[in-house]
Amino acid sequence: MKELNPRVVYGETLRSLGEKDQRVVALEADLGGSTMSCLFERAFPDRFFEMGIAEQNMASFAAGLAIEGKIPFIHSFAVFASGRAYDQIRQGICIGNVNVKIVGSSSGLSDFGDGATHQSIEDTALMCSLPNMTVLEPMDAAETEKIVEAAYRHQGPVYIRINRNDLPILYPEDHDFVIGEPVVIREGTDLVVFASGVMVSKAVSAANQLAEMGFSLKVVNVSSLKPLNAERVKELANGVQGIITAQEHSQLGGLASIITSIFKGDGRPIETIGVADRFGQSAKSYEDLLQHYGLTEEEIVASAQRILRR
């Protein structure tokens, strides 16, 4: 499967938005080479603000730019973008529904080497709990482009989780991303898995394995974590025996919580795959970490088998 880096595509997309619209500005907290806001900086130095390693000021400063009609994209690692500047996002951006786009790069465990301080498995919970906030997590580079364009068109605050590493391209070419809508990546009839980010490709691999065993797993990409069309989610689970969720995030407050609350009282078994209530750590490779925390296709297959054996 073809793999591409979501960060690079992110930077290219932001640059092309900058070409199209003078109102687009970018702010960076000294991670431009990682977040790839450097591509925007090179093209539009006058509309690029290096804010130094000061994420809190960056968030509030962006609020001021947005109040005056600019469309600011602010950048840092997801853990700092969402956590270090949480109060600034809450007070200055969300309460006033201010049009700031927050780009949380190197999300989840994808900054594998840097360890717990730089990994972000709580950001979905933090950002989804804020009224007026839209929370998006692309599953690959192709969807990253669509999501960044949708975030730009959306009036109001948006948080985007972007993975640091190359990911397989799964996004259907003719599909247009719509905020709030889950998308079927692979049809299936026995079970459904609601996945986001890197876990979508793991879910597709799991579906292949299960198919060999004679079971049919539907894979749904939930890249719009908030808002999320709950009726559509329920409809996508019509007729299946059980439901699985998979996100590279804490089990608390992420996709596991979101989907579980939609199926409250449903009665069918639900299995959730995510990071148990603990922090990340350093590893030599991304795959090692995903394995260690159970974020694998094997875990999805095992969850499916647990449901089917009931």
């Binding site: 509030s60 001021g64 109040i67 600019k70 600034q88 200055g92």
Partner: peptide, 29 residues
């Protein structure tokens, strides 16, 4: 609250943030 009252430019009250917002507004101008 800027959402509610005309003449209010930003939501402030969590101390330390208004000067940053004002700076962003000045940069936009």
């Amino acid at each position: 609250d800027m959402m509610k009252l005309p003449g209010v430019e930003a939501n402030t009250g969590s101390l330390g943030q208004g000067l940053s917002i004002a700076s962003g507004m000045a940069a936009a101008l």
